[in-house]
Structures are given as C-alpha cells and as structure tokens.
C-alpha cells in the first residue's frame, strides 16, 4: 500500500496543471477540556479546473469535517485551503455546496423558483438575470414545470434536483457535494448521478464529491482521493481512466471499473481494519 504521508502520495498534488482548489497540509483538531482531538492529519491534494474528484473513506473518518474546512465553513487548525490561489477564510463566492439532507437545506416557506433564486437575489444580481438563470437551472435539472411548487410537495430525488439547480444558477467554479445521493433510493440515485455527469459536461464544472459509496466514486470521478487513518490522511490517490461519457450498465461492466472498485475497497477495508486493531490493542 501507498505510504500514509500527505505529500508523499503520488498524484495527490499536481501543481503543474491548472489548479482550482488546493488543500495544503490541512489539519484539524477539536479542542475540549480533555485536550485536542485530531480529526484531520496532514492532508494535501489539488483539484484541476474541470476535474471531477471524489473523496472517499470509511464512515466516521472526518470526511464531512474536511468538506466543511474545504468550503470555508470551518478554519483548519494548520495548513491552508486555496481557491484560485487565494486562501479560503470564509465560504468563497466561487463555490457552491450541495448537502446530503436536502430537506434541511431548502426553505419550506418558498417556492422552488424562489429557493433557486434566493442566493442570486441576496447577491443583488439584476432581476431579469435572476429570472433567466433560475429558469435555465430548473430546466437543466428537469424541473421547469414545477417552479411554483414548494419543496415539501416533491419527492426526495426532486428536492435534491432543486438543491443542484440552486447551485447551478449560482454559477460556481467548483461544485462541492457532501453525500448528495445518500438519502434517496437506488434508481433515483442512478438518475441523479447521470444528471450530475451531464451537467458537469455541459457547464464544464469542477466537482468535488464527498462519499462513502465506492461505486459512486468510481462511476463519477476522474480521480479518487482515499482517506484513511486516525487522524485522517490521504492514503491513496488514483486516476479513473473511464472517459467522460459513462453508462450505469456498460461502464460498471468494464474490467477497469471492477479493478478500481476492488482497489479502493481493499484500501478502505485495510484502513478500517487497522483502526479496529489499534482500538482492540
């Protein structure tokens, strides 16, 4: 297995490419009366413009903490996050977030359309532009006919489409998603995965996906960053050379897909086994 040391992981940081986002020796620990609890060790990786990168790791490893640090909702205790070369100290304008729990990120007192338009209105975008961007975003996720409905009148999958439309209308450089499909049924998850792949091709977006679902990570990504250890570190970083166009049936039947899936799974297994051993010993 690859050595567990931030910079040492081959391919994690690629400064030569057109880097949009960079985590540079990011560490995070919670402090309490009992002392500091390190959650994230020394984490470094970069994301190139237009790239689809997944962060995978066993549950409880601190993926959500890392996502909150990367998106500027929390400050790292050491190291820094850079977006377009600038240090991230608060949620940056170039970034849009899609969270797992759509029902807690959409406003139930506003129609779908007003939910999607709200970040633009808050940013004082001109009225006509708000209207056209909102309509285009809802159209792109297939909800053009539902704009007057309220979020709670829609199924879970449709609500997550609204959250994605809101991010699209915001026109971010980087779309960050935290377990976005974990709360919907399997068929809906496939539909949403293909939707995100299509939007990403159409709009040339950079996507960072945080997930515990290895199939999802391999199916969607150009590159997978595997997190392991306690505190969490980058255990491996692998390219997914499956091309830009993917298919739920054909892609998943490819031997390369199976090989990649097996490799990520065994790394995560090894990592969580090591953690269990440590606890027992």
């Amino acid at each position: 297995m690859t050595s567990i040391k931030g910079d040492a992981v081959a391919g994690a940081t690629r400064p030569s490419l057109d880097t949009v986002m960079a985590a540079d020796h990011v560490a995070f620990s919670y402090s309490s009366a009992a002392g500091a609890h390190p959650v994230l060790g020394d984490i470094s990786f970069t994301i190139a413009r237009g790239e689809f990168v997944s962060l995978v790791g066993p549950s409880g490893i601190g993926k959500t903490t890392l996502l909150r640090v990367l998106s500027g909702l929390m400050q790292p205790t050491a190291g820094e996050v850079r977006l377009d070369g600038e240090r991230v100290t608060e949620p940056p304008r170039q970034l849009a977030l899609v969270l797992q729990d759509y029902s807690r990120s959409l406003l139930p007192w506003m129609s779908i359309e007003r939910n999607v338009a709200l970040p633009l209105r808050s940013a004082k975008v001109a009225r006509t532009e708000v209207r056209s961007r909102t309509a285009a975003a809802l159209d792109a996720v297939g909800l053009a006919g539902d704009s007057e409905k309220y979020p709670w009148q829609l199924s879970g999958g449709m609500q997550q489409r609204v959250a994605i439309a809101r991010a699209l209308a915001y026109q971010p450089e980087v779309l960050v998603m935290d377990e976005p499909f974990a709360s919907v049924d399997a068929q809906t998850r496939f539909d949403l995965e293909d939707l995100v792949l299509r939007l990403r091709r159409e709009f040339g977006m950079t996507v960072l996906l945080v997930t515990h679902d290895i199939d999802e990570a391999v199916y969607l990504s150009d590159r997978i960053v595997v997190l392991a250890g306690k505190p969490a570190q980058v255990a491996d970083c692998l390219d997914v050379p499956l091309g830009p166009i993917r298919d739920q049936i054909a892609t998943k039947a490819l031997p390369e897909y199976a090989a990649l899936r097996g490799r990520v799974l065994s790394e995560i297994r090894a990592a969580s086994a090591a953690r269990t051993d440590k606890k027992v010993g």
């Binding site: 608060e90 949620p91 977030l97 990120s105 970040p119 808050s122």
Partner: peptide, 16 residues
C-alpha cells in the same frame, strides 16, 4: 444548523 450552513455558504447578507 443545515439551513445556517446553507445561508453561510451562499454568502447571504444580514437582511436575507
């Protein structure tokens, strides 16, 4: 807290 995160990440002003 999810709504507050959403509001912060979309940089809502005080009024919004």
């Amino acid at each position: 807290p999810g709504l507050r995160d959403m509001a912060r990440s979309y940089r809502f002003g005080r009024g919004t």
